[in-house]
Computed example of a mutant assay.
Amino acid sequence: MAEKTPAAFSDEEKAAMKERAAEVKAARRGKSKADPEAAVLAKIGELPEADRALAERVHAIIRASAPELTPKLYYGMPAYAKNGKVLCFFQSAAKFKTRYSTLGFEEIANLDEGTMWPSAFAITELTAADEKRIADLVRRAAG
C-alpha cells in the first residue's frame, strides 16, 4: 500500500495565504478599509470567545504601550505596524488549530539580545505580570 504524501499546506495555511493576498490586493487598489483599527477589531470580534478575550486584551495593551503603531490585518490576523511594516501580530489558537495563541514579532522589532532571542510568545491566559511583560516588549520592539 502506497503512503499518502501530506499536503504542502494545511487548509488553515491556505486560508491565511488567501486572506493575505486579498489584503495586498485591496491595498494596491487603494481599497483598504478606511479605518484599519475597525477592521482589526472586527476580526477580533470574529474569534472564538477564549481567543477573542486574549486578543482584545493584547490589542488594548499594544495600543496603550505604543500608540504610534498602526493596527492592520496581516494574514487575517490582528497586527500592528511601524512605518507601514508589521512589527507584531496576534495569532489565535483557532487560526491554525493549536493549543495556544501567539504574540509574534517580525524582524523590525528591536528585541535583539546577543545572538539569540525569542520572536514569538505562547499565550494561554493573561496575568497582570504577563500584561506588563507584553507592554514592555512592545515598547522595546517599537523603540
Rank of each mutant, 00 (worst) to 15 (best):
L47C: 07
K25S: 14
E107V: 02
R29V: 08
I108M: 13
V138A: 14
A53K: 10
A34G: 13
K4M: 02
K85G: 03
G143H: 06
A7C: 11
T102Y: 14
A79Y: 14
L87S: 07
A128F: 13
L137D: 01
L87C: 06
A26M: 13
K14Q: 15
K72Y: 09
K14E: 10
A93C: 02
V24S: 02
G84N: 12
T124V: 11
K82S: 07
D11H: 10
A81C: 01
E131Q: 10
E13Y: 12
A120M: 14
M116V: 02
A38N: 03
L126N: 09
E68H: 06
R133T: 05
D11M: 13
T124Y: 12
S101H: 03
F89G: 08
G143P: 08
M1V: 12
A42T: 06
K33I: 09
A141I: 08
F121D: 09
R28Q: 15
G143W: 08
A15I: 08
A79L: 10
K82C: 07
E23S: 14
V24Q: 04
A120H: 12
A42N: 09
G45V: 13
F105M: 02
T70Q: 03
A15L: 11
T124P: 00
T102W: 08
A128D: 15
A55G: 10
A42F: 05
F90Q: 01
A26T: 05
E46I: 05
A129Q: 14
P48Y: 04
V24E: 00
Y75G: 02
E68D: 04
R52M: 11
H59W: 00
F96T: 03
V24W: 01
E13P: 05
E56R: 01
L111C: 11
L73D: 00
P48C: 05
T98S: 13
A53T: 10
F9I: 00
P71A: 10
N110A: 12
E113I: 13
N83C: 04
M17E: 15
E131F: 10
K72V: 13
R57D: 15
A109S: 04
C88N: 03
R139P: 11
